[in-house]
């Protein structure tokens, strides 16, 4: 019996709790989408997507722990890497519209 299957209260296991927490993180991500949509500058959008990416890494890790599949953490690591690549790529691109690439 792993920790994820431990019952906390009222039939709610730790895994369920982590899944609910993941849903909470997705709701917070929905709030951040406001900044990605509204802008007003491109850097604001990149920033919002970067924060969303960090959030998604956390969601993926929580899903992996909550569903009892620790190998899903690999996806989270891949995402953390590519989120960093995306942030530096787009932010550098917004300077002079790719003139400094």
């Amino acid at each position: 019996m792993t920790v994820a299957d431990t019952v906390v209260a009222g039939g709610l296991t730790v895994g369920d709790f982590l899944l609910y927490a993941a849903a909470g993180f997705v709701v917070l991500a929905l709030g951040m989408t406001y900044r990605a949509i509204r802008g007003p500058t491109m850097q604001d959008r990149v920033l919002a997507v970067n924060v969303l990416g960090t959030n998604t890494v956390v969601i993926l890790a929580l899903l992996g722990a909550g569903l009892g599949e620790p190998t899903f953490l690999d996806i989270a690591i891949v995402y953390a890497l590519l989120n960093f690549l995306m942030a530096i790529a787009i932010s550098k691109f917004t300077v002079e519209r790719g003139g400094v690439l």
Partner: peptide
């Protein structure tokens, strides 16, 4: 450009859904 940036956010959500 903003379309591409928001599309990045879309693929974030899709990856979480697949997971």
């Amino acid at each position: 450009l903003s379309s591409i940036i928001v599309f990045g956010a879309y693929s974030l959500g899709m990856a979480a859904l697949y997971t």
